[in-house]
Design a protein around this nucleic acid. Structure first.
Lengths: 153, 153
DNA sequence: TCGGGTTGCTTGATGTATCAAGTAGTGAAG
DNA sequence: CTTCACTACTTGATACATCAAGCAACCCGA
């Protein structure tokens, strides 16, 4: 399709501008409320939250980076800080010497437990209180398809 | 609504994760293709694009910052770089000495003209080729409502 | 006309993301 | 058993965003 249609038409533009507004403003809004409440960036919160769900609260750095929507390099820097703050620990993978495993500490789980309710409230008030059930479903579906496009770009 | 429901349910979570993926990955994807093609970040491109649409290709810095979804401080730093590259000029507003007006130079318009077709292709291939007309409309509508929530937070 | 508050913008310091390069472990072909 | 390519991760340099502070210009009431 993209070999024709060199410009966005009015309807597309009317969707594109708010969409750009969303992707540019939402991360900042989430960062801001998390930073204020518990001193974490949204990315850092995501790292802890993904680890919390993982088996033994432990995961390979690469898998973690993928699930957190960030590069391995970014995760590596962030993990160093979080480790310095005692929120997670890293250690060599016993079965593959190249891999590093990250695991939540008790302190990390505790901080996450303190952070989560407020964060959920923020997310609810920004997103889900504004959308109907059907809209939520469709939004998730569209986002998933767009992310897939980004990935196999 | 947000005084009850302390957690996201499965359906909400199934929408939330892809939405986070979208807002975290799309800016990077746009940055990357614009940087590669014309050496601009997506934010810088946005600044030029908004000025292009403006009357006389000129706008107050604060208005520009708002339309570009960024802080005035961020815009000020970016404008200094863009001015250094000869893509825009800044000068004092004649009717209000506090305000600064930014205007596109010919070089800026030319660069934007070179950048736009490729950028539109990227946006098309990532977003609009994947969505139906109805979906596009609804996505824009939802994004607009969410952005409104973020703004009057 | 002068003081206090506000608005518009810039700047410098700090923190963080990104990129390229580097190290080390692994697997597999010869 | 050695070499070569690949994978997983880290690191350091650079670029950028953010925050707090600062400085004028403006506005308005006394």
């Amino acid at each position: 399709m993209s070999d024709e249609a060199p410009w966005l038409d009015d309807e597309e533009m009317a969707a594109w501008l708010p969409l750009i507004g969303l992707v540019m403003r939402l991360p900042g809004a989430l960062d801001h409320s998390l930073r204020r409440d518990v001193g974490l960036s949204h990315f850092e919160y995501g790292v802890l939250a993904v680890l919390e769900q993982a088996e033994d609260h432990t995961m390979r750095m690469s898998d973690l980076a993928y699930l957190c929507n960030g590069s391995l390099s970014r995760l590596s820097h962030v993990a160093r800080r979080l480790e310095g703050d005692g929120l997670l620990r890293r250690y060599a993978c016993p079965t593959d010497g190249r891999s590093t495993l990250a695991t939540l500490t008790d302190g990390g789980r505790e901080l996450l437990g303190n952070a989560a309710p407020g964060h959920v409230r923020t997310v609810r008030s920004l997103i889900f209180d504004e959308l109907s059930r059907d809209e939520v479903r469709l939004l998730g579906d569209m986002a998933e398809r767009i992310v897939a496009r980004i990935q196999d770009q």
